[in-house]
C-alpha cells in the first residue's frame, strides 16, 4: 500500500488556542497582543509628531483624531496595553532573576491584571467626567 506523505507536524494557531494550558499561556498571549498594539500606536505616534514639522496648523488638525469619540476606545485599550505589558513584564523579570519566585507566578499575574484593569476603568471614568 502506498505510504502517504508525512503529516504536517507544526501545530497551528488553532491548536495553540485550543490547548488548555494554565494562566501562563493566556498571560503570554495577552502580553504578545498588547506588545503588538503598543507598537502599532508607536508607529502612529511617530507619524503625528512628524506632521508637527509642517507647522502647528497641520499638527492641530490631526489632533482632532485623538479627541474624537471614535478614537477613545483605542486610547482606553492603549492604557490597558501599556500597563499590562509593563506589569506582566515585571512578573517575567522577577521569574527570570529569582527562579524560586516562580511558584507565585499566578498571583503575580492576577495582581498585574487587576491593577491594569482598575487604572483602565479610571481612564474611562475620566473620559466621561471630562465629557
Amino acid at each position: 500500500m502506498k505510504q502517504r506523505a508525512a503529516l504536517r507536524t507544526a501545530p497551528s494557531l488553532r491548536d495553540t488556542l485550543s490547548y488548555r494550558g494554565g494562566v501562563g499561556q493566556w498571560a503570554w498571549l495577552l502580553h504578545r497582543l498588547s506588545g503588538l498594539g503598543v507598537l502599532l500606536f508607536l508607529v502612529l505616534h511617530v507619524l503625528d509628531i512628524f506632521l508637527a514639522s509642517f507647522g502647528p496648523e497641520v499638527f492641530n488638525k490631526l489632533l482632532f483624531l485623538y479627541h474624537s469619540w471614535i478614537f477613545r476606545p483605542f486610547i482606553v485599550l492603549l492604557v490597558f496595553g501599556v500597563l499590562y505589558h509593563a506589569l506582566n513584564g515585571l512578573r517575567l523579570v522577577i521569574v527570570d532573576f529569582w527562579p524560586a519566585a516562580n511558584v507565585y507566578q499566578k498571583p503575580m499575574w492576577v495582581g498585574a491584571t487587576i491593577v491594569s484593569l482598575v487604572v483602565t476603568l479610571i481612564t474611562i471614568a475620566a473620559f466621561f467626567w471630562e465629557g
Partner: peptide, 22 residues
C-alpha cells in the same frame, strides 16, 4: 518565554521553568 505550560503538564511535578531559569 516563561509560558509555564511545561510546569502544568509535567506528570512528575518538576518545576521545569525554575530549572530553565537557573
Amino acid at each position: 518565554r516563561n509560558i509555564f505550560n511545561c510546569v502544568e503538564a509535567c506528570p512528575r511535578d518538576i518545576n521545569v521553568n525554575k530549572a530553565i531559569a537557573e
